[in-house]
Simulated scan of single mutants.
Amino acid sequence: MQLIDGKAVASHFKAQIAEEVQQLKAQSGKTPHLVAILVGTNGASETYVAHKVKACAELGFESTLVRFDETVTEAELLDKVREINENPDMDGLIVQLPLPAHINPDAVMETIHPAKDVDGFHPINIGRMAKGLPAYISATPQGCLMLLEHYGIETAGKHCVVVGRSQIVGLPMSILMQRNTYPGNCTVTITHSKTKNLAEICRQADILVGALGRPEFITADMVKEGAVVLDVGLERVPDASKKSGFSLKGDVKFDEVAPKTSFITPVPGGVGQMTIISLMQNTLLAAKGSIYKK
């Protein structure tokens, strides 16, 4: 079993991105600028956004954090999104999910201009990705691909089983893994909470992606010997032994699954590290006008 060290891989890509940012500044005077909108005071969302702002500072990006109270109306939020769309100095825009129940997340995502949708959630970017056209790819699936490539893990002809069908991870991951490229060329099965014989299907996987959002759902009896396991889950589980009062757990019961695998990502320290790197890469592409010409 080899541990896929997301932290080490992220450090490798951080150095590359920082160098590209310096080159961009020297050539054009342009500094990549990421805008994050945060609604309410959700603890996990606060943490995620703080990590993104910190990464911007480390890599030489400019960042702007726009905060709204939980009571903000959908119309007010959409007006702010449109304002940012029109600002040529702002390259990428993310709206941190989840949003309050009275705001339709699809309406928000569809209002973000595709050229600034560095989260890769806009239907145009999802459609372009599905067709194999240049697009901003959702950060977490893209991070998974970067890990597979960095470790030279063979994917062609392999059976990839994705557990979870969310539009943020499961769906794009299933599309990416079947594309005629590397990483890709897999035979893909996408499963979810209503799938019958789920454990049996998971045991067929050469590459198993846990993206269901249920802590330690995937156990050893669901994994075949030698499988590659990518754990996308990240949930807070109460833990009185921790100063914070919680532990971070993935979808995979790591201690019992890891000995059966050829490669596995830990939680934390695995895929999550690469999610932010992917977001930074997308923002750099936006600043350069690489996907949508400025």
Rank of each mutant, 00 (worst) to 15 (best):
V108C: 11
G157E: 07
A130W: 01
I153K: 06
G170D: 08
I103W: 08
N87P: 02
G152F: 02
F121V: 12
G157N: 04
N87C: 00
S193Y: 10
V81L: 09
A135T: 01
M146P: 10
L145F: 12
V81F: 06
M173G: 11
R165W: 04
S174W: 01
S166R: 10
G152P: 12
I112P: 14
Q178S: 15
Y136K: 03
V188K: 11
G143H: 13
P114R: 02
S174T: 11
A107S: 09
L97C: 06
H113E: 13
Q96F: 09
I137K: 10
D91R: 06
L171G: 10
L93P: 15
I137G: 01
R179T: 08
T111N: 11
H150S: 10
K131W: 02
I137L: 09
R82A: 04
A101W: 03
L99C: 12
A156V: 02
T191F: 01
I84N: 02
T111L: 09
H159E: 01
M129H: 02
G143F: 12
L198V: 10
T191I: 07
G120D: 03
L148Q: 06
K194G: 06
A139W: 05
M146C: 10
R179D: 04
A130V: 04
N87V: 06
K194A: 09
N180T: 14
S174A: 15
T155H: 01
Q96I: 15
